[in-house]
Simulated scan of single mutants.
Amino acid sequence: MRVMLIEDDRETAEFIQRSLTELNWTVTWCDQPKDGILQLSTGSFDCVILDRMLPDMDGIAVVQLLRGAGVATPVLMLTARGGLDDRVAGLEAGADDYLGKPFAISELVARLRSIARRTPRAAEQTLYELDDLRLDRVARQASRSGTTLDLSPLEFKLLDCLLGHVNEVVTRTMLLEKVWGYRFDPKTSLVQTHMSRLRAKVDKPFATELIRTVRGSGYIIGET
């Protein structure tokens, strides 16, 4: 197995490299994310071990750049930040699995073997366009009729989720899980409040309404 390791901590990297080499795996270590991105875009690897906290570039940004460039190599993200929001952010950015530090080598190996066995993912769509609405997932920017939309991170996630299901109903439960990471209903108007703010920015200043409420179900985005 050929493994790309992007990790800036020498002690951790040497431990991983030594342990995996004992399995006759080939490990290429890069302590700078830009070097790792370059090698992944030009070389062939079975999987990637990617540290969440890196100098100059966050691990989330690294995996977004890889997916945006069409690099489908499975990614296991390592982090000392094991909160639900951090795990969701990593997985939604395009990582295939998430492992908290400290970790056991046996678990690391098992997870790497698991993601390497999976069917290679298709390159994820990085640009959504609907009528005069445009959302760039890599640049994290949205615009309509050439006007940049000043969206909060949550509003961007909501719009991204809707555009991933054009002309399909996206339920309130789906939004709670995908945007907030909730596995339960908080029994609040959280979704309605943020959707109202999003629609005020995406629809109200323009002639055509793209986001519509489906009463009793959720929301739908599409050309009318």
Rank of each mutant, 00 (worst) to 15 (best):
T173G: 06
A69T: 05
E22S: 11
I60D: 10
K201R: 02
Q141I: 12
V71R: 04
E155L: 06
D150M: 10
L20D: 07
T148K: 12
K187H: 14
A116F: 08
P55Y: 13
R10F: 14
L99F: 13
L175V: 15
D136L: 05
F15G: 01
G43R: 11
A93N: 13
V166K: 10
S189L: 12
L190P: 03
R197W: 09
R87P: 09
L20C: 04
L162Y: 12
L210E: 01
E14F: 05
A122E: 15
G216E: 10
R199V: 08
V166I: 15
Y128T: 04
M4P: 02
L40P: 06
V191N: 14
V166L: 05
I221G: 00
I220N: 00
L78E: 12
R87S: 10
I6G: 03
A95H: 11
I60S: 04
E92H: 15
D85H: 14
L159N: 12
A93T: 11
D136Q: 04
D96Y: 06
D131R: 07
Q17A: 11
T224H: 07
D97I: 08
W180Y: 15
P74Y: 13
Q125I: 14
R134A: 01
V75Q: 12
D132N: 00
S143Q: 14
L158S: 05
D136S: 03
R18S: 11
V202R: 00
V214M: 00
A207W: 02
K157R: 15
I6V: 14
M174H: 14
D85L: 13
L50Q: 07
D131Y: 14
R67D: 11
L23G: 04
C47T: 10
I16T: 01
V202N: 00
V27D: 07
A200P: 00
D35V: 03
D9W: 07
T147H: 04
Q17D: 09
E177W: 09
V71D: 06
V88W: 11
A104H: 14
L130H: 06
L151Y: 10
D31H: 11
G59N: 11
R197K: 15
D136C: 03
A207Y: 04
D132V: 00
R111G: 09
G68S: 11
Q32Y: 08
I221F: 06
V88S: 12
C161N: 12
R117G: 13
L23W: 13
R140C: 05
Q17N: 05
K201I: 02
L163G: 06
E155A: 10
L108Y: 08
L162I: 05
C47D: 09
E223V: 02
G43W: 08
G94H: 08
T148G: 07
P102I: 08
K201V: 01
A200S: 02
T148W: 11
